[in-house]
Design a protein around this nucleic acid. Sequence first.
DNA 1: CTTGCACTTGTAGTAACTACAGGGCTCAGA
DNA 2: TCTGAGCCCTGTAGTTACTACAAGTGCAAG
Lengths: 134, 134
Amino acid sequence: MIQLSRGSLAKKTGVNSETVRYYEKIGLMPDPPRTLAGHRSYDQLLINRLTFIRRCRELGFSIDETRELLELVDGEDYSCAEVLESTKAHLERIRNKIKDLKKIENTLKTISSRCSGEDVPVCPIVDILWQPPS
Amino acid sequence: MIQLSRGSLAKKTGVNSETVRYYEKIGLMPDPPRTLAGHRSYDQLLINRLTFIRRCRELGFSIDETRELLELVDGEDYSCAEVLESTKAHLERIRNKIKDLKKIENTLKTISSRCSGEDVPVCPIVDILWQPPS
DNA sequence: CTTGCACTTGTAGTAACTACAGGGCTCAGA
DNA sequence: TCTGAGCCCTGTAGTTACTACAAGTGCAAG
């Protein structure tokens, strides 16, 4: 039976130790048991829970979405369908974000290519950005 | 000679009117001249400046990067080279972000495809995310 | 004239952390 | 056994880039 301190948990899961405290404050992680001296003590279940949270966050789920996923899993009768729905909605948002960034990429590429990059105080990039509003 | 109120400026440039005030507070926009009653009054130069800022922000430049671009343009002797450098560095960051999001997209696609989406309390997505840390 | 909207200020809230300050505990080494 | 480094504890403030409110003033149309 493993028992980790907050710092060890942080190392093990790859989550910043202050962030652990933050997750407890906002209720993503439960208040953990304490040692006699008042130090937090985490078992395997809590380690796995924090890892789940870290993975959700790395996949771009917001804290609130992560909370909902956790509530589903915590609940007695969660269903695969609900999890899939949330995941697909999130996937759609990620795809939209990629689309937006590609538009930005194209614009930046275009205006960069118009710019000589010479050491002169005349810049097509600035010219483009500095036009009056359409 | 145009003179716009804050609200009209907001409409004209597509920037929220509270945001205008915020940009003045952080020094991106100068304190504008006032009418006798103390109302802000914006001329064409300020309209163009705010539009420049909006475009930078839409292209994903941070406030600080936008400020640097403005300082270059405001300065007597800015050079095209400096602008291009900043733009290219930013383009690189955008490309990295796209790469990261594509990785996320792939992962989400993969785990979604493993999930039946049926109304059962067994979910491959959850199984994957709920594994102990590696 | 009045009513409703725009304007003024300062302040507080948002997301998701991150970084202190000021104090207590613990454990390895001398 | 002592001591000092490095954990841990709490609460609070800072970050980015806004956005929203509250309480009060001014202006313009009907």
